[in-house]
């Protein structure tokens, strides 16, 4: 990948290690194992995300990175290890699912907007049903988050009337509206052409600038290199290499990661 070497890794003014105290840990993944049938897709994965950090998980297709993200949010069950996110133990059934959902937002590759609702209703649905906001409050919050993603004029449009990039920004706004403590992004630009990718990445960068704790699985290496505080390279279901962005990009410790960033995949 032709990466301009003058671009400093990590965002200016942010400490790549985040707050030094241990209580700043928002996501803690410890020695997690996950099988799909006989296939071991996560093999003793551990990582930590601190308050306000942006952590990019990168790697080839099939390396387990999306599965890891889905496990963090309880969409996939794990067979070993422990995941604690915002103080909620994800491994223990669905009993604490409501609190988990309150604190963790997720955005998907395929947007997953509700096609039968307007943009505004997509955003207000959970506000009124889950957070018990009044309609007026919910509409105000929807307008607020839509303005944040640059779609203030689209509140009465239906998803199918929007471009992929706009739909993805609505999906980000929908998640953001619930004021989560941490947001998970699962290859959110993989279905978009380069132009639309840029507008979505711009929104994500804004979010990061506002101090949102973010974990993203991405193929956008230039974006990861420029914006992420920490990079986690996954390979064969393991965390193959991880560390502060500038350091791992400048000095890859493993041949696999060197090859991966070298080929620009």
């Amino acid at each position: 990948m032709s990466q301009d070497s003058s671009l400093a890794a990590g965002r200016p003014g942010r400490d790549p290690d985040g707050p030094a105290n241990a209580s700043g840990v928002v996501v803690s993944v410890q020695n997690v194992t996950k099988y799909f049938g006989p296939l071991k897709v996560l093999d003793g994965v551990s990582l930590e995300v601190r308050q306000g950090q942006l952590v990019a998980i990168v790697g080839r297709s099939g390396s387990g990175k999306s599965t890891l993200l889905r496990c963090m949010n309880g969409l996939e069950a794990i067979q070993g290890g422990r995941i604690v996110i915002c103080g909620h133990d994800v491994g223990i059934g669905r009993s604490n699912r409501a609190e988990l959902r309150r604190d963790v937002g997720m955005v998907f590759q395929s947007y997953n907007l509700f096609p039968h609702f307007t943009v505004e209703r997509n955003i207000t649905l959970a506000l009124t049903l889950v957070k018990k906001n009044t309609k007026v409050e919910a509409a105000r919050i929807a307008a607020e988050v839509l303005a944040l993603v640059g779609l203030a004029d689209k509140n009465s449009a239906y998803p199918e009337q929007l471009s992929g990039g706009q739909q993805q920004r609505v999906a980000i706004a929908r998640s953001l509206a619930l004021s989560p403590q941490v947001m998970l992004f699962d290859e959110v630009t993989s279905a978009l052409d380069p132009e639309l990718t840029i507008e979505v990445l711009k929104v994500m960068e804004d979010l990061a600038g506002r101090g949102m704790t973010m974990v993203l699985v991405t193929h956008e290496m230039a974006f990861a290199r420029r914006v992420a505080d920490q990079v986690v390279f996954m390979h064969k279901g393991k965390v193959w290499e991880a560390g502060p962005t500038a350091q791992v990009f400048a000095h890859p410790a493993t041949a696999e990661f060197a090859q991966f960033i070298g080929t620009g995949l």
Partner: peptide, 27 residues
């Protein structure tokens, strides 16, 4: 109705009844 509609509404915190009545059955 795509499985992803279940996942998206789950991640927004809707319970199963709300998922049915607001997201899945209308579609």
């Amino acid at each position: 109705v795509p499985r992803t509609q279940w996942e998206a509404s789950d991640c927004l915190g809707l319970n199963r009844f709300q998922q049915y009545t607001h997201v899945i059955l209308p579609q």
